[in-house]
């Protein structure tokens, strides 16, 4: 598909030698547009709403899982596993233990998604 695009571009240049003088900016094709932070956030919120014990109305980026959302440590683990499932990644234990707020979780997931 890429080769085809290159070929057609060449053909066009050959046909119109005058136009060839115009420098064509290289066009890059991506299979999927890179994920945005807003997208991560909204998907994370959706996933978190499935956690039973969570108080939905207080769900913000700054919310602390335990202080603001009324979860205990086991619920927090559950919430993070729900996020892992949503984004199909595995948060290492060390980092999971450090994550205290929704924002921190979103930041981590965003960084990981960008690496892909």
């Amino acid at each position: 598909m890429f080769r085809l695009a290159v070929r057609s571009a060449r053909v066009q240049m050959a046909r119109a030698p005058v136009a060839a003088a115009i420098v064509r900016a290289p066009v890059r094709f991506y299979a999927v547009a890179p994920i945005t932070k807003e997208e991560v956030t909204s998907r994370a919120f959706e996933a978190l709403k499935t956690v039973a014990a969570l108080q939905e109305s207080k769900l913000t980026l700054e919310a602390n899982f335990q202080k603001d959302l009324g979860l205990d440590s086991l619920d927090t683990v559950e919430a993070l596993v729900a996020l892992e499932e949503e984004f199909d990644l595995e948060i290492p234990d060390k980092i999971s233990d450090e994550i205290k707020t929704v924002g921190e979780a979103v930041d981590y997931i965003y960084e990981e998604e960008r690496k892909l």
């Binding site: 086991l74 559950e78 234990d93 233990d97």
Partner: peptide
Amino acid sequence: REVLKLYRTCI
């Protein structure tokens, strides 16, 4: 931490 780790693997 160990308890949470076990819980996480279970979940």
